[in-house]
């Protein structure tokens, strides 16, 4: 099966910053459920390296932790590509996902035509620890379920 025909699940985060690594836990659940039709990648990278991960896949589901501060910790948030088009503010340090997507489009790179993002709102991803908080643990099945729903709708079966 070519990469174009495959679906990528890209989990972003930092596994030594507690809930910032929650996407990895969800990704591991999905890896076991979709061993053939989905490629699951876990990365702590940010910015342009995301180009390398996303290129050549037809569809991509990004999992991440978010700290919007606008909803309770454990809330599952979903965005799609159109949401990113509205987000053009410059980032102070690293190139954000919206820029990566826009850049790929301008440069004509082979990029996922379908892209969805599932995030969990987390409360404090600034303390070093290798475990999740109770809120994140409790919300993990809901995060995996949201991801599963998208993958199933894309025709991923196993």
């Amino acid at each position: 099966m070519t990469l174009q025909a495959k679906t990528l699940v890209l989990a972003l985060g930092n596994d030594i910053l507690g809930d910032d690594g929650v996407a990895f836990y969800a990704a591991r659940l999905l890896r076991a459920e979709f061993p053939k039709s989905v490629v699951v990648v876990e990365t702590g990278e940010a910015g342009l390296p995301l180009l390398d991960h996303l290129e050549s896949y037809g569809r991509a589901l990004i999992l991440d932790a978010a700290a919007t501060g606008k909803c309770p910790a454990g809330t599952i948030l979903r965005w799609d590509r159109e949401d990113f088009r509205r987000c053009v503010a410059p980032s102070q340090h690293s190139a954000g996902l919206p820029h990566i997507l826009e850049l790929a489009e301008r440069l004509g790179l082979a990029f996922p035509t379908e892209l969805q993002v599932v995030c969990m709102e987390v409360s404090d991803p600034t303390v070093f620890r290798e475990t999740l908080t109770a809120e994140a643990k409790q919300a993990l099945p809901a995060m995996a379920a949201a991801a599963r729903e998208i993958l199933t709708a894309w025709g991923c079966r196993e």
Binding site: T68, C87, G96, V122
Partner: peptide, 16 residues
């Protein structure tokens, strides 16, 4: 300056 260590703060930007 390095603000990149913490969460990815989706939807993708570190809001100022």
């Amino acid at each position: 300056p390095c603000f990149g260590c913490a969460t990815h703060t989706l939807p993708g930007e570190m809001p100022m």
